[in-house]
């Protein structure tokens, strides 16, 4: 009974994490589902978002402006991966890995801005000392300072803007590039531009997620994004498995990625309660994602054939 209570008590925290990571999952959805590229930049750009936001706030900037700066940094990270991929012809996965690796060094430098040391691996924020938009400290409080309010609004705004964007001519050309690159070029779409744009938008969102997380958790760390791509994929896949039959509208598909992230964090909270160490989570996440990615393939490979024999 105590365990159940403790679990219920920790649910708001899971929702907070889930919403913040949900924005990251939307970014992954854009590259992985719309553009059909697994972009590994996100592991770095999530931390970049957190680092830029934390540094700006430490220097006394307005926290909203700090969020904006984080997004801009994310857009730039996406631009670099996009140019490495299109202008330099590096395969997308490798381009993402290169940017991610480079960002590790850059993030250490970013977090040292304004301090005496040259590099810094963590930067703490405190809602007592600094002006933050959201903090996990108030996640169980009934009031306007509850971080879930900001997070829900952020998710709604992001989905609304993307829904509008992907209904525009330029958004449609981006979807066409992901759907069939030959067709897109034959219809006069500059597919390289589309790819760069998708990577830019995606990493902007991932950095926004990192910035919100840094404020929510009260710290930015250089490895806060480690394995982020897998968590993002887990959220996208969980959302699809549960809602792909009912959520047909594009906005709802984005929402299903956010719900996927929330479910992911609820499950994580549960298994932590059951006695797993926090350090075991990456293994657990990898196993879950591997299973869900393998299911469609295994279904076709083994059950598809058997079904065919029956029919013949």
């Amino acid at each position: 009974m105590d365990g159940l209570l403790a679990f219920i008590n920790s649910l708001p925290g899971a929702f907070g994490q889930g919403f913040a990571w949900g924005i990251m999952a939307i970014g992954v959805y854009i590259t992985y589902r719309i553009l059909d590229i697994a972009d590994l930049t996100v592991d770095g750009s999530l931390a970049t978002g957190g680092a830029v936001c934390a540094v700006c706030i430490t220097m006394g900037w307005n926290p909203w402006l700090a969020l904006l700066m984080a997004v801009v940094a994310g857009l730039l990270a996406g631009l670099i991966t996009g140019l490495l991929h299109t202008a330099c012809g590096i395969p997308a996965i490798l381009a993402g890995i290169l940017t991610q690796l480079a960002l590790y060094s850059i993030n250490l430098r970013i977090m040292a801005i304004g301090s005496e040391s040259t590099t810094k691996a963590t930067l703490a924020l405190s809602v007592d000392k600094q002006n933050l938009i959201l903090s996990s400290r108030y996640v169980r409080e009934l009031g306007l300072n509850n971080p879930l309010i900001v997070l829900v609004i952020a998710v709604i705004v992001v989905i609304a803007v993307l829904y509008w964007f992907f209904g525009r001519e330029i958004g449609c050309s981006l979807r066409a590039t992901g759907a069939n690159v030959n067709m897109a070029r034959a219809q006069g779409i500059n597919t390289n531009f589309s790819k760069v744009l998708a990577l830019v938008i995606s990493n902007g969102l991932v950095a926004l997620s990192g910035a919100l997380l840094a404020q929510y958790q009260g710290s930015a760390t250089v490895d806060m994004g480690r394995g982020a791509i897998v968590i993002g994929l887990a959220a996208v896949i969980i959302g699809e498995v549960l809602f792909s039959k009912v959520f047909l509208n594009f906005a709802l598909k984005l929402l299903s990625a956010v719900i996927g992230a929330i479910i992911y964090y609820i499950v994580i909270t549960l298994v932590l309660r059951l006695g797993l160490e926090a350090t075991d989570l990456k293994l657990l996440t990898a196993v879950v994602v591997a299973i869900f990615l393998a299911i469609p393939h295994i279904k076709n490979q083994y059950f598809g054939k058997r079904g065919g024999k029956h029919h013949a």
Binding site: R168, E169, G171, C172, G188
Partner: peptide, 11 residues
């Protein structure tokens, strides 16, 4: 929209 500039008009 082949051959035309694609902007923020409706798709």
């Amino acid at each position: 929209r082949r051959g035309k500039k694609r902007g923020f008009r409706a798709g």
